[in-house]
Amino acid sequence: MYGNDFAGPDAGSDGGLLGQVEAAEAALRAAAHRGRVEGDPAALQDYFDAVIDADQKIEPRDWMPDAYRRGLVRQIAQHAHSEIIGMQPEGSWITRAPSLKRKAILLAKVQDEAGHGLYLYAAAETLGITRAELVDMLLDGRQKYSSIFNYPTLTWADIGAIGWLVDGAAIVNQVPLCRCSYGPYARAMIRICKEESFHQRQGYEILHTLSHGTPEQHAMAQDAVDRWWYPSLAMFGPPDTDSTHSAQSMAWKIKRFSNDDLRQRFVDMCVQQAGVLGLRIPDPDLRWNSERQAHDFTAPDFDELMRVIKGDGPCNAERMAHRRRAHSDGAWVREAAAAYAAKQEEVVAV
């Protein structure tokens, strides 16, 4: 009942998104056993290119071009920041969840997001940067997080819509990253994708229950889908014609599919699921195109996406203020922990 894109692991590499995750995991296990290669700069570059060409993994021990390293730090950090900021819109409903079961599921989900942030910061740290530096760059605005988290969660149904649409879009974006060329990022993504697919099912189930509940609940579910549909489509980024980082990322096999290809895949996936949910996708021009074997649909408002990325979304200020407050409120705790650890080391030394 949860949609047909998340087949079990036994479905094979073409049989579903989780099947693709399993195949990627096998490749990563093989990559972890390769040795380090030494040599002059030209030889190192040749080796790097050969590894990428052969669809193998670059590991922290390997030489890599500076731009590859910088691009990965930027992408992994933005992803990690998104997980951490992304705890806020949903977390605000933990205390108001309408049943104890839903409260438990939501708590576990928000906890997973903190965990995803941790794996991703750890993956970024293998590239020679610290978590503290990355957090500073988030707090002072030098690095960004996904603009989707700058939209508000107005009702309980938003928790369902975020799970179904936002986590659904995240999975479509992220499953190909399980096969990305940088080993530690790919490994982090494997675990994250498995958990995200769980979150997506939970969101779908919330919406299904609401849609088939009282008329007020149904209206609440439809309203949430109406508000989250286009921001979710915008999560795939600007159209291919305007995407600044895409070509190089594709060549380095960090990115595997274009923004527009992934957006199309997501729309095609949602249409059938919306039918089962009994909810309407708010696009009057959405229809099957038998020539393309895909749905035609209305593109999201990319001007709005750019405005939100630049800081002018409904909740940008609130999200950053919350993060900065948590960080500054916790300063005395972190200082105390460091002071205590130093005292313990002195005791051991004596």
Binding site: Q88, I94, T95, K103, A114, L118, A331, R334
Partner: peptide, 17 residues
């Protein structure tokens, strides 16, 4: 449950949850 994303460290967000 009200301490989501408010702990002094990310590890503590996980622990409190």
């Amino acid at each position: 449950g009200a301490w989501y994303a408010a702990g002094p460290e990310m590890e503590e967000d996980v622990a409190l949850a």
